[in-house]
Design a protein around this nucleic acid. Structure first.
Length: 285
DNA sequence: TTTGGGCCCTGGCGGC
DNA sequence: TGCCGCCAGGGCCCAA
């Protein structure tokens, strides 16, 4: 499920095919994804030039030559496939939007579960759009740091996992990277956010940046229903230390566990705020 | 204001 | 083999 690294990977994958290109044809195969698509969606996009692509949180933004911004979210199961000249396999049932460029490439937005969304908004109104107005800092940008994280969570009475999933605290983190960052930081996911010390907030912020950067370098993670823009799979999932590893031995704990018990500590799975959390009860406190 | 829970959606999977 | 029900989860909305 696309989180920041996957979205960044998709955006980078789309750049060569979209930046500077004219959208010669836009086919809209349904009226809505998660939310209704804007009126006259394909008509308003046809003939527009994509000046540049960018990413904000888990959204990919295409800045157009008429000062409009097309942006989309991949939801849980969304993916984007680039089809070069001459390659036009039959459309699938979940290929909802198809963009054809003046370079004869086709870009298909496919989202079986339709948790994704797509919208078109004026550049000047972008920051006020409900998708963007309350977003917190980018974790890989200069505006995010240990002190910033500490300030954001110091009064929060919710658990730390829910806190870092809150896009108002820091953007781009989903269930997978929240679990990974807490495991690598050796912090229990059920710690009340306000109990973290300044030092712990710095460790967590640093770990979040590290985990996300490594995932981007690896080309984004992949579950069954995620593929990079180019159609290639990402491979960071092979580096997950805790997510999806229920019952497996913790890779961080020395043999026998930190407390010297003979049984090797194993990853446990609990439910937090309706989401699965994977953690090691031995090394995360 | 903050927090937590319900809901949306549908493919995959396990159980019967 | 086919059916049923559960699970996955990002973000919006609403109630407490």
């Amino acid at each position: 499920m696309p989180e920041l690294p996957e979205v960044e990977t998709v955006m980078r994958g789309l750049r060569p095919s979209l930046e500077g290109r004219v959208l010669r044809k836009v086919v809209q195969r349904r009226d809505d994804l998660r939310f209704p698509l804007p009126e006259r969606f394909s008509e308003r996009l046809t003939g527009r030039t994509v000046k540049r692509l960018s990413r904000r949180a888990k959204y990919v933004l295409a800045h157009l030559d008429d000062d409009m911004v097309l942006f989309f979210h991949l939801g849980m199961s969304g993916r984007v496939t680039i089809l070069p000249k001459g390659e036009r396999p039959p459309l699938g049932a979940h290929d909802h939007i198809i963009f054809e460029t003046d370079d004869d490439e086709e870009i298909r937005y496919c989202d079986p579960r339709r948790f994704g969304m797509m919208d078109l908004v004026c550049q000047s109104e972008l920051s006020a759009h409900k998708a963007f107005r309350d977003l917190g800092p980018e974790p890989l940008g200069n505006e995010f740091s240990g002190p910033v994280l500490f300030e954001k969570i110091k009064n929060k009475k919710t658990n730390i996992k829910a806190a870092i999933l809150d896009q108002r605290v820091v953007v781009g983190i989903g269930n997978i990277y929240a679990c990974e960052a807490l495991h690598l930081s050796r912090m229990a996911p059920d710690r009340i956010a306000s109990t973290l010390s300044q030092k712990e907030a710095e460790i967590l912020a640093s770990t979040i940046r590290d985990v996300l950067n490594r995932a981007i370098e690896a080309g984004g993670s992949s579950l069954r229903d995620y593929v990079q823009a180019s159609g290639e799979l990402g491979y960071f999932q092979h580096s997950w230390t805790v997510y999806g590893r229920e019952g497996e031995v913790c890779r961080h704990c020395p043999s026998g566990g930190l407390s010297g018990q003979t049984a090797k500590p194993v990853i446990q799975r609990i439910q937090q705020n309706g989401r699965s959390t994977f953690y090691c009860p031995e090394c995360q406190h």
